[in-house]
Simulated assay, not measured.
Amino acid sequence: MSLLILAVDQRPWLTQALYGHTATALPAERAAITDGKHMVLEGLLAALDAEPRLAAHAGILVDEQLGAGVAERARAHHVTLSMPVERGGCDVYETEPADLPGFLAHFRPEFPKVLVRYNVEGSASDNREQRSRLAKVSQAVRDSGGRFLFELLVPPTPEQRNVPSEVFDTEVRPGLIHRAMTEIVEEVPVDVWKLEHLGAPEHYRTAADLAAQAGGECILLGANAPVATLDSWLTDAAANGFTGFAIGRSIWWDSLRGLLAGDLTRPEAIAAVAANYRHFAGTFLQ
Results as ranks from 00 to 15, higher is better:
205 R>F: 01
233 W>D: 12
222 G>H: 09
225 A>G: 02
203 H>L: 02
220 L>I: 11
212 A>I: 07
203 H>K: 07
206 T>P: 00
231 D>T: 15
209 D>F: 02
228 A>W: 14
206 T>Y: 05
243 T>L: 08
224 N>H: 15
210 L>K: 09
241 G>A: 06
242 F>K: 10
227 V>I: 13
205 R>I: 01
228 A>L: 12
209 D>M: 07
230 L>F: 07
205 R>K: 07
225 A>E: 13
232 S>P: 00
223 A>F: 06
236 D>P: 00
211 A>F: 06
204 Y>E: 01
234 L>T: 10
240 N>S: 03
207 A>N: 02
236 D>Y: 12
203 H>C: 04
219 I>R: 06
235 T>N: 03
234 L>E: 10
243 T>Q: 11
238 A>N: 00
236 D>C: 06
210 L>M: 07
231 D>N: 15
232 S>G: 09
203 H>N: 10
241 G>W: 07
211 A>Y: 04
222 G>C: 05
207 A>I: 02
210 L>V: 12
230 L>P: 02
211 A>V: 06
224 N>V: 10
211 A>C: 10
208 A>N: 05
230 L>R: 11
204 Y>F: 09
213 Q>W: 09
215 G>D: 03
227 V>A: 13
227 V>F: 08
227 V>Q: 14
231 D>V: 15
219 I>V: 15
219 I>F: 05
205 R>V: 01
212 A>V: 09
236 D>E: 06
239 A>E: 00
204 Y>S: 02
224 N>Y: 13
216 G>A: 08
243 T>Y: 04
214 A>S: 09
211 A>N: 08
238 A>P: 01
242 F>W: 14
205 R>W: 02
229 T>E: 14
226 P>W: 15
205 R>G: 00
226 P>N: 09
212 A>H: 13
244 G>F: 08
224 N>W: 15
208 A>K: 08
213 Q>Y: 03
236 D>S: 04
207 A>L: 02
213 Q>L: 14
224 N>R: 15
206 T>R: 13
223 A>T: 04
240 N>G: 00
227 V>D: 10
225 A>H: 14
235 T>S: 08
236 D>W: 10
223 A>W: 11
242 F>L: 13
237 A>N: 12
234 L>Y: 14
215 G>P: 00
226 P>K: 12
219 I>M: 08
217 E>H: 05
216 G>T: 09
241 G>L: 07
234 L>Q: 11
227 V>S: 12
220 L>R: 08
221 L>T: 09
235 T>I: 12
209 D>H: 07
235 T>E: 11
226 P>E: 11
219 I>K: 07
229 T>V: 14
